[in-house]
Every structure is written in structure tokens, then in C-alpha cells.
Simulated scan of single mutants.
Amino acid sequence: MNKALGQFSDQAAPADAPRAPAFLVTLYGDVVEPRGGTLWMGSLIECCAMHGLSESLVRTAVSRLVGAGRLEGMRIGRKSYYRLSDAARDEFREASRLLFLPPPITEDWLFCLTETPQEADLPAPWVRLSPNVAIAPNREDVAPIDGVMMRARQLDGCGDLRSLAWEKWGLDKVSQIYEMFLERHRGLQERLDGDVVLSPEEALAFRLRLVHDYRHAALGDPRLPLECYPPEWPAEQARRLFVTIYVGLSDLADTCVGQSFLNDDGALLAHNVETERRVFQLKREIAAWDEYRLLTKHYTF
């Protein structure tokens, strides 16, 4: 890892380099997609070097993403540029909801019934209760599957829904990933609350690693109704940490983008409508927490 990241290695950022293909996905989602989707290969290489990824690893990862239809390349003179494919752009927009909008509150369930037993794999967060019955949390982003669709709520006091959810959705692993995120980044929040001074390059490096780790945790979370989780479930704490650090780093991080990142038209904008909208949404989320805390404090008897 670069020394710029190593100074906070104790609980502030993971010491090992991330996997290159997954990290490039994070980089495009956080920095490039809201600024048009195209980036010069040289900017990719320079940014990834801060995270211990060599030029050869980056080039290999780019080739794999091109082969998978996630990136599209073009060459102008001696320089290569890569942009998101249309399909990947749609995926990024959907994934950005997990990062920049408050998690939805899921209150009930979707059931799918089929006349004949089914064995095909289901899209997350659907799981099978039996060969003829599948279940998923009822949210706007959960698409129906083939079969007779129904909605349901658990009757109070009937059955152990928490144990069922823990088994079917592997919530022990989800919890571990959230806890790892908290362990890696809690120290950075403590330092940001102190008198630490970061350069724009360091701020962007930490924000990218923050997004990379939180995205991994949030994508694995099926976001079930609250009664499925124990009181110490770490998702809310992880969410608050992510939002607070992201907002705290963004001014400097976006300055680095404007100074160091190039596409085929020149320098990427440090700020635009989309990047400002993202930060505004997160600040509104913080404001809602503060308002709720004041209300509960005022009405506590």
C-alpha cells in the first residue's frame, strides 16, 4: 500500500490491496460515472497505484471488464480511454441507490408459488423455502419472478422468523462483512474528528476505499424486515459511518478529481450537478438523524 494510505492503516483502511476488477468498478461508480463515464487509462493507473495495484494488474483488469461487456475502449492518438457500456451504466445507477439514498424500510414479504417444483437459481434477494415456494422482502427494487405472486406479513408471536432469515439469507456472513467495514474505517472517522490534515489525493484514496468496502457490505445485505435482525445488527452503524465519512472527505476528494483525472475532452469536473446531488442527499440523511435524535431526547420521559 502507498504510504499515503499506510499512515492510517490501524483501523482506518485495510492493509491489503483490493482486487483490481472490483476496485475499478468502485472507481468508475464513485468518480467516473457521474462525470460522463469516460476516463484515460493513465488516470486509472495513477489512482490505482495509491491502493497498491500495479499497472499490469490494472491493464489486465480493464481487459477483463471490456471482455465482460462492462467497459468500452477507444483510442485517440497514443492514448486509450475507457467508458462504461450502456448495460453497465444502468447497473451503476441501480447500485448508487444503495450508497446515496437512505436504506428503505421493508415491512412485509413477497411470495411466489409454482405448480411444478423449481430448481433454477433465483436472483437475490429471492430464496426458496421449498421447490414450489420462494420468498423475498417486498421492496421497490425487488422484481417479481415467474409464478403466482402474493404479499404477506408475519403474525405477531407466530414462529421464529429470525432463525429462518439467518439460515436462508446467510446473515452471519453479512454481519461479519459489516463488522469488518466498521473495524477498518472507524479509526479514520476518529482522526477526521481530530486535527488531521489530508491532501486531496489522500482524501480521494480514503473515500474510494470507503465506498469499495461499504458497497461490498450493502450489496450482500438482503435488507429484510427489521424483526429478522437482532438488536445489535451492525447495518445502521455502518451506514452512519459511511455517510459521515463520505461527506467529510468529499470536498477534498472532488478537488483531486478535478486536478488529476482526464477524459477525452480534458480534465474531469471537480463538481457537477450529479456529484453535488449525491452529497446533498447524504447531508439530508445526516440532518434527519439529528432531527430524530433531538425529538427522541425531547420526548423521553
Rank of each mutant, 00 (worst) to 15 (best):
residue 66 V to K: 07
residue 193 D to K: 14
residue 87 A to K: 12
residue 23 F to C: 02
residue 241 L to Q: 08
residue 31 V to R: 02
residue 21 P to H: 11
residue 114 T to C: 12
residue 205 A to R: 04
residue 119 E to N: 13
residue 201 E to R: 11
residue 218 A to G: 08
residue 148 V to T: 14
residue 127 V to R: 14
residue 276 E to Y: 01
residue 146 D to K: 14
residue 184 R to G: 04
residue 96 S to P: 01
residue 195 D to W: 07
residue 268 L to S: 06
residue 216 H to N: 07
residue 98 L to C: 01
residue 152 A to Y: 15
residue 233 W to I: 06
residue 135 I to Y: 05
residue 185 H to C: 11
residue 73 G to W: 01
residue 214 Y to W: 07
residue 123 P to I: 00
residue 74 M to D: 10
residue 96 S to V: 00
residue 77 G to S: 11
residue 132 N to A: 08
residue 133 V to N: 03
residue 211 V to Q: 04
residue 67 G to H: 12
residue 206 F to T: 04
residue 2 N to Y: 03
residue 17 A to D: 05
residue 3 K to S: 13
residue 257 V to K: 01
residue 275 T to H: 08
residue 251 D to K: 11
residue 177 I to R: 13
residue 196 V to W: 08
residue 278 R to S: 09
residue 155 L to I: 15
residue 285 E to G: 06
residue 241 L to K: 02
residue 12 A to E: 09
residue 249 L to T: 05
residue 291 E to H: 14
residue 300 T to H: 13
residue 153 R to S: 15
residue 56 S to T: 07
residue 204 L to C: 02
residue 267 A to Y: 12
residue 177 I to D: 08
residue 77 G to E: 12
residue 176 Q to F: 02
residue 268 L to Y: 09
residue 37 G to F: 07
residue 146 D to H: 13
residue 181 F to R: 04
residue 234 P to Q: 07
residue 9 S to W: 01
residue 6 G to P: 03
residue 190 E to M: 15
residue 152 A to P: 12
residue 158 C to S: 12
residue 29 G to S: 10
residue 195 D to M: 04
residue 229 Y to H: 09
residue 186 R to I: 03
residue 31 V to G: 02
residue 101 L to K: 09
